[in-house]
C-alpha cells in the first residue's frame, strides 16, 4: 500500500509534508516527493491534507492491488473519497464527520 503524487497537479504547498506520520514526504524543486514509497503505512493523512487532490492511495501489487486509485476531496465536514477503478469506473463515497460509524 502506498501513494502516488501527480506532479502536474501538485502546487508545492507542503501541507502533506507537514502531516505524514512517517515524515516520508519532502518538497523537492517545489513539488512533494515520496523518496521511499515502500515505507508508507497507507494511513491517507496526506490525501486528506492535499487541497488539489494530487495524492492517491493504491494497493501494491504484492498485496493483490488491481490498479485502483483513491483521492480525497474535503468540503467542510464532508470527505469525498473518489476512487478511479481498474475498469475505468469512478466511485465516490462521501463521509460526514458528524455521522458516526453504525457498527
Amino acid at each position: 500500500m502506498s501513494i502516488l503524487i501527480e506532479e502536474s497537479k501538485c502546487t508545492g504547498c507542503g501541507a502533506c509534508t507537514q502531516v505524514c506520520p512517517g515524515s516520508l514526504l519532502k518538497l523537492q524543486d517545489a513539488k512533494a516527493k515520496i523518496a521511499k514509497p515502500e515505507r508508507c503505512w497507507g494511513c491517507c493523512s496526506c490525501l486528506k491534507e492535499c487541497p488539489v487532490q494530487a495524492i492517491a492511495l493504491y494497493l501494491g501489487e504484492d498485496m493483490g492491488g488491481r490498479g485502483g486509485r483513491m483521492h480525497v476531496q474535503k468540503e467542510g465536514h464532508l470527505l469525498h473519497w473518489i476512487a478511479a477503478l481498474p475498469g475505468g469506473a469512478t466511485k465516490i463515497i462521501t463521509v460526514d464527520s458528524r455521522d458516526s460509524n453504525k457498527y
Binding site: 494497493l59 485502483g68 483513491m70 476512487a83 463515497i93 460509524n101 457498527y103
Partner: peptide, 24 residues
C-alpha cells in the same frame, strides 16, 4: 445497505480495505 456503511466505516480507520472491496 450494510456494504455502504462498512465502506464508510473502513474509510474512517483503514481506507485500503474499502479500496480492496471497490477493486474486487
Amino acid at each position: 445497505e450494510q456494504d455502504d456503511e462498512l465502506a464508510k466505516a473502513y474509510l474512517n480507520m483503514a481506507p485500503g480495505q474499502t479500496l480492496r472491496w471497490l477493486e474486487t
